[in-house]
Design a binder for these strands. Structure first.
Lengths: 368, 368
DNA sequence: GTGAAAGCGCTAACAG
DNA sequence: CTGTTAGCGCTTTCAC
């Protein structure tokens, strides 16, 4: 925004301040002048603070109205020692899951009077660090982190500088990460997916894990394996493939798995995007879903229900997680400045359990 | 962020300022103290301004390093009379097109040192207004508007308050909207789509227009119609349907169109999402694409290439538009404060032309 | 070259 | 009830 009034030169101390024309932003003092009181009083009226006479209050409100006054957020932030935004770190907002989450976060933040800054880290820890250092504490009061491949080191430093950090989707409720987080029981999600497939009668299942071996999707795969074992099945390594967490990744992995073992009657993917890729692979191979091949994913992104056939998946409470994350962040912000580093284990909020959503991509295997 | 140091009480004027421990944010004066100079000098060093001796400069840089100093963005903004962010208004970031655009905008903004605030208006002008009034000029230096259903009135007011506004995807380069904008020749996009279908030999084409009659997609439809007419065909009203700009909308409209006229061999949709819906409708009706039905969209969102069959579409230069929009916004910001309202027609930047991208969803119609 | 001082717009403590 | 005042952290003239 432009400088509203020529800056007063040193020495012009007694020059009358030029009132802003209607063109530009009105300030508190202008409102005050018009209402015949001081800025402090206007401030009090606006924030319902301190006692103000009814007559004055009216005059102030009129002036505010007449001048279209809007508080200057940066100024207010500075004076209050708080910042008007929260930051959401994601690897790329273009990943189809994030926008749904970001939307929920924005709503939650907004309802608490804060704005949302989107930070795309591009999976690059350097970028993440740059973002954290620049805005945490100076422009953003706190930071929400969605798998963005950040250094924990950097996150702790961010906390130390006074800007709380919340991890938005921790996958292992029982193994807290050493940072406040919202945890979703993804192990259970994997279990549910496996159980569904088992109940339908599948015995030859391929698994597409949308990350490196020990990566973010490991818990989901563990749950899947556990369910298999509980049913007396084993999970030979040639039936698992680690792939990029994208449609492409799922597509290639599925083709590869089916090539290795044409007997597979189902594909379990640790995320919806790769599951969608599996659907495409099936289509390209002339396999009918679910008759020839069943496919199940995890998350329940919007695309899942829009795919053809619609994707069976284990739904994760995205909106709930977003709301919990924002609440938790607020709590941490409100709590004593140096609480987080001082106290013991940081807080972990667990969302409600993932739920199976049966759609058209799963069914009983061909018999024979 | 927390208050870093207990606010000095009135009367404690001579109390020594508590230096921030390593826990919290360092300020300019702390750096100055450590470097044995004044804040002004530190500021000068950091912004390469004013002459500073090499020795001092070194000491300052060391101190900055040692204390991990980061400028306070809100404070800087206030002092400079500018804001550190730009705002992107969208109806909902969850609409699959926006994230791709937002990503490009964020990159462009970031490379110019600004952060991106995402504002979901939810198609509600009230919400849009609230956003504009609150952040424009106080937290955001300018506003980028992506079809968010905002009142032009509000946008003009925003400009008048000193925060430039840029419309990001104006559909009619030749009919400027009275606000600065980036225009994409969507009429031409419609034309290209129609020509492609015509060249393949289609004569019975259904059109799904992803908005109200006079809505945002009207130009695309005009281009389509023009191409048809140029080929000597007419476009009977029963072959057009206006629908929501979503997969669902496209799905329903396509079914309806095919019910009205089973002879249709192709569907033209004014956007990719409805086109994807058309694909699903075809699948559900047992029609093979493209043998029984060809489908073409406009935009080329990521999903288009991931769909099965992959969607033929007319690609719009999204990244280019994002970059132009950010550049234009910056120019307006840098330009004289009250330029925009003063001068004549606001600037219009036109992107390069849309381009046909042929994929698997279009082909020659069955003969017979 | 470097420092002193005013000011950005707003808040909060305290005095009247 | 209302005004005075100091201060948030930084920038920027202007003197020295």
């Amino acid at each position: 925004m432009p400088q509203m009034v020529p800056r007063l030169q040193a020495g012009s101390k007694f020059q009358e301040i030029v009132p802003n024309s209607e063109y530009f932003m009105t300030t508190l003092s202008e409102v005050a002048r018009r209402a015949g009181c001081t800025p402090a009083t206007v401030s009090n009226v606006l924030r319902n603070r301190g006692r103000v006479g009814e007559r004055t209050r009216q005059r102030v409100l009129e002036a505010v109205e007449a001048l279209g006054y809007q508080p200057h957020l940066a100024a207010r932030a500075l004076a209050e020692g708080r910042a008007p935004t929260i930051a959401l770190m994601v690897s790329s907002i273009a990943n189809p899951f994030y926008p749904e989450f970001a939307l929920a976060v924005e709503r939650a933040a907004r309802s608490r009077g804060q704005f949302l800054i989107i930070c795309n880290t591009n999976e690059d820890p350097q970028m993440g660090r740059a973002y954290l250092q620049q805005i945490a504490g100076t422009l953003s009061e706190g930071v929400l982190v969605m798998n963005a491949n950040l250094d924990f080191e950097d996150l702790h430093q961010t906390e130390a500088r006074g800007a709380p950090v919340v991890l938005c989707m921790w996958e292992r409720p029982l193994q807290p990460p050493g940072l406040p987080c919202v945890a979703v029981d993804f192990r259970h999600a994997g279990e549910l997916a496996a159980q569904h497939l088992l109940e339908l009668g599948h015995r030859h299942i391929g698994a597409v894990v949308g990350s490196k071996v020990s990566g973010i999707h490991a818990a989901r795969y563990e749950g899947y394996i556990d369910a298999l074992r509980a049913a007396g099945l084993d999970a030979p390594p040639e039936r698992v493939l680690h792939a990029a967490d994208t449609t492409q990744g799922g597509y290639r992995a599925t083709r590869e798995l089916l090539e290795r073992d044409p007997q597979l009657t189902a594909i379990f993917a640790t995320n919806d995007l790769p599951a969608l890729g599996a659907l495409h692979a099936a289509a390209d191979l002339g396999l009918r879903v679910p008759d020839d091949l069943s496919v199940i994913g995890i998350t329940d992104i919007q695309l899942a229900q829009e795919a053809r056939p619609a994707l069976t998946t284990v739904a994760v409470p995205t909106v709930e997680a977003a709301e919990l994350a924002v609440s938790l962040l607020r709590e941490l912000i409100e709590a004593s400045p140096r609480s987080s580093s001082a106290a013991g284990e940081p807080r972990v909020c667990v969302t409600s359990a993932p739920k199976l959503v049966v759609r058209a991509s799963t069914g009983a295997p061909r018999t024979g």
